[in-house]
Design a protein around this nucleic acid. Structure first.
Lengths: 209, 209, 209, 209
DNA sequence: ATATAATCGAGACGGTACGTCCAGTCTTCTT
DNA sequence: AAGAAGACTGGACGTACCGTCTCGATTATAT
């Protein structure tokens, strides 16, 4: 979002500390781990970051926005590996995602910002842009590889393909999150295998119909 | 002061008002609708219920516990209908669940208490007991009907059957919640149809393997 | 106010426990010692007395009334001794009074109820009846003895005599209380001697004028 | 962070509002008049002063400290006049003091904080510094004038002189307070005359002995 | 004996104020 | 202009007592 068309925005005065930004996000994650979402305070984050509260508010509108930004980057580490088969790839991603949800800073924060977003359209957009939509790439990437391997047919109807991708994304992300956070049961290799089997069999059958 | 085997714990003092309990839960739901989770205050609930704040704290440890109890009852209205086929039954339940998640009092509250529960074991237990586990009945009921109709084979390995039921529950609940609250896309009859097709095909294939 | 014209007030039902009254007053004094006036609570007094809060309120209108009654009895122990001279008698009473004001239950309570009484006419009356006026006897008794000994002339103008007694009472009680509680300086035999000298010299000169 | 001899404690951040201080003390006195000591609440004072409750607590530890400061200034208005004779001067001060004790903000507050101080050493010190000791100046001033006029001999023993001043202060302040607040009788010119006569005669006799 | 009635302990009730904490803003001086 | 520091308003928190009320259980007098 950095593409300003102005060659010089005519910035005067002391420039913002670039180091502060990362220090604040890091402090936010640390505070999340220690205190959890509801106990996290802006003052605490500022203190940990060695920064004044003013500086926080100059850069983020509030607690929600700050936490979304602090947490978003964690989801970028998810990678679709290439293990030779769609099944292996999906299982691996499921386990990666589960591992991410084990970490305390994601655990609380994800649900909390989602909860907040149900009443705040701007926040919902921010979450979708920063977190959700960016992970759909995994689904698309996995499908393309499977198609290259001949495991999946190349879909021609673009719209239907997109709808299916969305559906798969909701099923994978939803099931993993629900298992991890709501049912609060462990997600191990066995569960990943069984879940993947269910998903791929369903996909295959749906595709051949 | 002769200590008989005490069939009654000898309740003394003024008994708690039974009417207050229901008034409070009702007021909590109303406040949830108007203000949402994060803006809801104990004071507001007390005022709406025509009750003193102390009465709330005498019965619930805090906001989280109160909201779980207030919302739990809403989930009991979910019903597994008998529409003649497993597919139709599942689609109907998915749409019911989606409709429930449209309601503002469930929307915010559900995710918020789940988020809180990631740091609070007691709350997690309460949620599981009051909300989650009670809805697993729907899965079991659906399966039994399908087996009676001959749509699904009768599983003999009890443990495997239970694990499969859990998996299905996580997939259904997870996908619906994720679609509704995270992806924030509408859940209509078409989505329900496509999701159900995926699920049942997966189940069938998994069963015959 | 005890002059009921009814020979029998026709009291039926369970009579009030006589033991409770004394237990409550005793508990009040104990609580005063431990907690002081402002921290004393009705609930605490009830617990100490092994009595329900209801029982307190059935007998006293509130904290103020209860404390006045609990403390009043302590002032009755003041005695005007007969040591052979007015000066010795006055010094002895001053020291007795000072000793009474050293005790924690009187220290706090006396000033606190006086403070309350500045806004509460009924309480002011109760204090005057229960505590203040009853101690004026000491002044009258001392004067009479001094007159019998010939140390003081017999006053003929009754009204003037009464006004003088009031003045002396205010001077003695006021000076002792002020020294003990406001100046917070010790009242020892030397102070008592010097104060008495001042007072009696003033009296004598005033009488002979 | 090198600790130099710190001529300035290096005040950083927004300075405290000086205006708020006076507004709060004024509001405290107003609240005292309307509600009296025991009904006065910090919240009410804050509202009257147009200030947040936190601002009060940032500057005063509690109700007691606040009230002492609010009331202390009232006592500074007492003045020892110069009416040509010691007797006239004393009578005038007595009447001034009595008038001060008529005012509702002093009436309740004085006794209440004295009562509290019996359990709180810090408060006792604060009262002595802010109120009591500052009024001893009146005694010293009166004595000096009387000595200049030749009404009183110049005392040589400094210690004895100081003890006498303390005694006189306790007698005057004590008698006036006791008459006004405990006996709850009016202090008029006649009472002031009789009291002054008693006091000065006693003084004279004591001095000549 | 059996009402009738006031008392008792216990503890929940509607309220009010407490003192604390945090959000988000504002004001000062420093960089 | 941005920064650190910290005071500011405003509002919810959860607690503590207040004085009242409802209970079931006692304990008297009056029938």
């Amino acid at each position: 979002m950095l593409s300003r068309s102005h060659p010089k925005p005519l910035r005067t005065g002391r420039p913002r500390s670039a180091a502060a930004d990362e220090a604040i996000l890091e402090a936010t994650r640390a505070s999340l781990v220690d205190l959890g979402w509801s106990k996290l305070t802006m003052g605490d984050v500022a203190t940990r970051a060695g920064v004044a509260k003013t500086t926080l508010y100059r850069r983020w509108a509030g607690k929600n926005e700050l936490v979304v930004d602090a947490v978003a980057v964690l989801f970028d580490e998810l990678e679709m590996p290439d293990l030779g088969s769609l099944s292996a790839d999906v299982q691996a991603v499921v386990l990666q995602f589960a591992a991410l949800l084990e970490r305390p800073e994601t655990r609380t924060a994800l649900m909390a910002v989602v909860a907040e977003s149900t009443r705040d359209e701007a926040l919902r957009t921010r979450i979708r842009d920063s977190i959700v939509d960016r992970q759909k790439r995994l689904v698309l990437q996995g499908r393309q590889r499977a198609q290259e391997r001949g495991e999946l047919p190349v879909e021609e109807d673009e719209e239907a393909a997109s709808a299916t991708a969305d559906l798969i994304f909701d099923v994978i992300a939803g099931a993993v999150v629900h298992r991890a956070l709501v049912s609060a049961e462990p997600i191990d290799a066995d569960w990943a295998r069984r879940f993947t089997a269910l998903l791929l069999a369903g996909l295959e059958a749906a595709a051949s119909s």
